[in-house]
């Protein structure tokens, strides 16, 4: 029993350490090829597969600078606070049928939504403690963005929970049927877009807009602490992609799901992550007012309409 828990936590930790690196390397290569470049080619000899490992070594060697005017303890704590929520979320995402999941949780979906929301605190900590106006502006933009997009994020997730009649993530995946792709299509779009905004990926990267805010709330960070923020971003991609796959794309459902269900889940997650990377290359950054407008005037009404639709179909079916 105890060994099983240790094994599960260990496997989740391995996924936590490898999947973001794979996503990061894919981003290097996919972006490069979309822009008619080659991307990293030398590190590790074969198509630069070891580039991110080299990057990691570089980050570890860099000096860890805390600005003199900064609030030291808060400044140093912020990267860890940014990373921890995503690590916890990975624990409850179902990989395959049965109990192929880090930890069965009765209210898994609710846990995910609650814990992802804690990430804002880390952004505000980093922004304020840096004692830098660019950082603070970036942090305030991030907080406004995260507070706004939390609403469509939660509402669209609530729709699928209502459709499945459970808050447990493995339960939702088990209840999923192919025609939900159509039924829950608006919620899928709302969830994916607001998830993208939650992890502040382009086109929602106004908080770290490098052409105007240097690097937003991460401006003052160097070395390993900066690497932690970067890692949090890539774990964020893994979390949002796997959540989209599990909630809306059927997770492990597919041919021969009993034996290779985990492969379907990984494939779907990878496909969504590819779209996340693709959007970064294809879309210009949204301006702050456009960003809020999209959230409040498009996504929230769409999510509410989806909730009504979900409730209607549920009542009609029962």
């Amino acid at each position: 029993m105890t060994w099983e828990v240790v094994l599960r936590v260990g496997l989740v930790a391995v996924a936590f350490l490898t999947l973001p690196l794979i996503v990061g390397q894919t981003e290097h290569k996919v972006m490069a090829h979309m822009q008619a470049r080659l991307g990293p080619m030398y590190a590790g000899a074969f198509h630069g597969w070891a580039q991110l490992i080299a990057d990691g070594v570089k980050f570890a060697q860099k000096e860890d600078v805390t600005p003199r005017a900064a609030d030291g303890p808060v400044f140093r704590l912020a990267p860890a606070v940014a990373l921890l929520p995503y690590l916890l979320v990975l624990l409850v995402i179902p990989l395959g049928p049965g109990d192929l999941v880090g930890q069965q949780l009765d209210v898994g979906l609710f846990f995910v939504l609650a814990v992802v929301g804690v990430g804002v605190v880390a952004v505000l900590m980093a922004a304020w403690a840096s004692a830098n106006k660019y950082s603070l502006l970036g942090g305030l933009r991030a907080a406004a963005q995260l507070l706004g997009y939390e609403l469509p994020f939660v509402l669209s997730a609530a729709s699928v929970a209502m459709a499945a009649g459970t808050l447990s993530l493995p339960g939702i995946v088990a209840a999923w049927q192919p025609w939900w792709l159509l039924w829950q299509l608006p919620a899928t779009i709302v969830f994916f877009v607001s998830g993208l905004a939650e992890i502040r990926r382009p086109p929602f990267d106004m908080p770290i807009a490098d052409s105007e805010l240097v690097f937003g709330y991460m401006t003052e960070y160097t070395g390993l602490r900066f690497a932690f923020f970067l890692l949090a971003e890539y774990v964020g991609i893994v979390v949002i992609s796997s959540l989209t796959a599990a909630l809306f794309l059927g997770g492990w459902h597919g041919p021969w799901a009993e034996s290779v269900g985990w492969l379907w889940m990984l494939l779907k997650t990878g496909a969504v992550a590819f779209v996340v990377i693709w959007l970064r290359v294809a879309w210009p950054r949204l301006r702050e007012d456009q960003l809020q407008r999209l959230c409040w005037l498009v996504l929230v009404p769409l999510a509410l309409a989806q909730l009504v639709l979900t409730a209607g179909v549920r009542v009609a079916l029962s």
Partner: peptide, 15 residues
């Protein structure tokens, strides 16, 4: 408690 108080109330306060 986490979603409402930590994720929203304190964040609004800090903001």
């Amino acid at each position: 408690q986490v979603l409402i108080y930590v994720g929203a109330v304190v964040v609004l306060l800090l903001f």
